[in-house]
Design a protein around this nucleic acid. Structure first.
Lengths: 131, 131
DNA sequence: CTTCCTCTTCGAGTACGCTCGAAGTCAACC
DNA sequence: GGTTGACTTCGAGCGTACTCGAAGAGGAAG
């Protein structure tokens, strides 16, 4: 039994669509070393495979949680350096997660002050209505 | 009975200390219209009063929750325009609060993907230990 | 009076993360 | 063969939010 390798692949614009980044940004991520050099077709055009898309998906989560491009590059370099870097990757991600949790707490704390101010303006509105 | 106006006031560096911003940033906030022009002493030096400090405190909460400087200026302008702008202020702050809540949700969502990745690396660690 | 310190204004510089324009290549379609 | 459209690289430009350096003024202490 022979299996045909029907490797799915995406052009830069398809990949951009798939991961929610612009084509500019995808090329820039590659240039910045956030993803390994993307494979090319015979005409030199990028072909993103499923693994590339998956990794870009993770990168967008990291960016979405505020990781700096510098740290994303550090993580990407660890991944490229092979299986001997699991501990370092774990440390990087755990450090990031802790910072994100702190950030969420800070947002909630600061939001309380805003909510208090909102309640003041709501109180003024009620006064207006009662007069 | 006469009361002496013991108005507390702060130099730019004291104000910076009090609100947790740099002196550069405080001067810049004034220049950008995020606070009303700060009073000066006879030598032309800024004197921040309690109200200024309080307003700066609110501004830091707004910045801390990711409000843009442009929106902070809009809010400051509404405050300076007097009591007729309560509705507009409320609308601005409520819109902001909604965006912050969405942001917190997005952080939590994206963090789940990171946590999943962390759990994968933890699993690898356990494999190593068991071999 | 001199030194020291903090303040002033002004404009320039920095860091980050994209975002874009220009010029050119290549495959596909008519 | 010509046109179209998506792609390539390169370097430049942009928006946001500060951050800083330089030059000078003014008050307080020795």
């Amino acid at each position: 039994m022979t299996t045909v390798e029907t490797t799915v692949s995406y052009s830069v614009s398809e990949a951009a669509e798939a991961v929610g980044l612009s084509t500019y940004t995808l090329r820039w991520y590659e240039q910045e070393g956030l993803v390994e050099p993307i494979g090319r077709d015979s005409a030199g055009r990028r072909r993103y495979n499923a693994g590339d898309i998956g990794f870009l998906g993770l990168l967008t989560k990291l960016r979405g949680t505020g990781m700096s491009v510098a740290d994303m590059r550090r993580y990407a370099e660890l991944v490229r350096s092979g299986t001997g870097t699991y501990d370092a990757r774990l440390e990087l991600l755990e450090g990031h997660r802790d910072r994100v949790l702190e950030r969420i707490d800070a947002l909630k704390r600061d939001l309380e002050a805003v909510d208090f101010k909102i309640s003041m303006y709501r109180a003024y509105q009620c006064q207006e209505q009662s007069s």
